[in-house]
């Protein structure tokens, strides 16, 4: 209780900050609590990146028509995984409008909402893309094994394999984070009262 008649020093408008550690632990906690959705998102990312990895390492013919369709599949895999991640992240944000509104009423900054949604997506992207890249490689090997038997590694496109793994992993991560960027931005800019009125 301080006299309102004297605009005192402790009424200087302060800044809010939140340590990275706290944001991280909250993101992990939020994922753990909504494990069902997290697994679903993981599956989307994992499937998409596995498909990409398979395309990169599968035995290829030099027929121009085949190369054409291979490119098309590559583009398709990017579009499908991008749309899938965008959709799941949008859903997960709309489901949480009320929660986001409450947090804003408690003093969460726009940037906090933005970072926490992005961070959750990045964690999912990290795990999903990693698992997907490995899974894609294994599928590719198994399928090639069925077709080519002992000749498997000569038939497959395994030149620069670590580079391909890294590439697929990074693309998977980037797609997930980009897919989450738009929903995260929408969520962070929402006025607290609108967010509170949102669906539960």
């Amino acid at each position: 209780m301080k006299p309102a008649t004297q605009p005192s020093a402790d009424w200087e408008i302060g800044s809010l900050s939140l340590s990275l550690e706290v944001v991280c632990s909250m993101a992990v906690n939020s994922l753990r609590q909504r494990i069902g959705r997290a697994v679903l998102t993981l599956l989307t990312i994992c499937t998409a990146t596995a498909f990409m990895m398979y395309l990169l390492t599968m035995p290829r013919s030099t027929d121009p028509v085949d190369i054409q369709s291979w490119r098309l599949m590559m583009i398709l895999s990017l579009v499908v995984s991008g749309a899938g991640v965008l959709n799941t992240m949008l859903m997960s944000v709309t489901q949480r409008y009320r929660e986001i509104g409450t947090m804003k009423c408690l003093g969460a900054l726009d940037s906090f909402i933005l970072y926490s949604v992005l961070l959750e997506a990045a964690i999912l992207g990290l795990v999903g893309a990693f698992a997907g890249a490995i899974a894609g490689l294994i599928i590719s090997i198994l399928l090639a094994l069925a077709d080519h038997g002992g000749e498997v590694f000569r038939a497959m496109e395994i030149a620069n394999l670590p580079g391909k793994l890294l590439f697929v992993f990074l693309v998977g991560m980037a797609l997930t984070t980009l897919g989450a960027l738009f929903p995260a931005f929408i969520a962070s800019k929402m006025p607290p009262m609108d967010a509170m009125r949102g669906e539960k």
Partner: peptide, 12 residues
Amino acid sequence: LDANELAWLRCR
């Protein structure tokens, strides 16, 4: 107040 100052107000 701007958006960040409002957040501070709501918080503190």
